[in-house]
Amino acid sequence: MQQREEKQLESSLESIIQRVNDLKASLSSMIMKIETEYETLNWPKFLDNYALVSGQLISLSKVLSHDKCTNLRNLTVLPLMLSPERDEQLVQMTEGRITTFSYDLVPDYLRTKLEPLAEQKMMQLELKAQNLQYDNAQKQIAAYQKVVSHVWDIVNKAREEWEVEASSRGSTQQNSSVADTHLLVAAVGMGKNLKMGGNPNGQPNPTSGGMMVAPQGRPGGPPGQGPIPPSTQAMSMNKAPSAIKTNIKSAAQMHPYGR
């Protein structure tokens, strides 16, 4: 009989330790993230971590409340020997947190009851709760529920408004037009709709359509083959209009060169 109980205790302790270790690992990774990645950490990531921790807490409490699990409250931990000396094994086991198993530390670490101060406070509160009139309690609960439901309503309303706004923005507001994009890109890239203005003599340009798009039109190399002479005379700007005029004149004369 006793042997069976011992076995049960051992297995339940093992599963508890495993859960606690999982919890510890995810807590430490979360702390690590907060300390090292606080610049890039965003809310979704943080909440993911939080959800992991709370899930592990729930599974731990499930293990603890399971029927097969020995009720730990009924067990006693009895310190057999205290020593002020440094205990290497203990250091290793606690990952460097506790170095000695001594008088001033043991009461804190092996505590099974609340701290006296906290316990006193709990007692006071419990006493107060017991002395409360039933009607009074009901009234307080009702008031509290009223406040909570009011806040709930506010949050719900805000969410609804937000969702409506988001959906309307997503569907109706059109900020750009694909047709305009194509028009502009074709104009800038290939001179679509711009050519008439650029051809003062009105001569239709036979290759205008395929000028930039013709696949065989790919130039063999960079335009470096015609050496661009470094401009020797620095033109002052008042000469620029004359350059443009030349350009019109020669656009009309250009065909003898072109053909």
Binding site: G226, I228, S231, Q233, A234, M235, I244, T246, S250, G258
Partner: peptide, 12 residues
Amino acid sequence: SSTILEFLNELG
């Protein structure tokens, strides 16, 4: 410089 327009025209 602005002579580039003239230059391109001369180039054909």
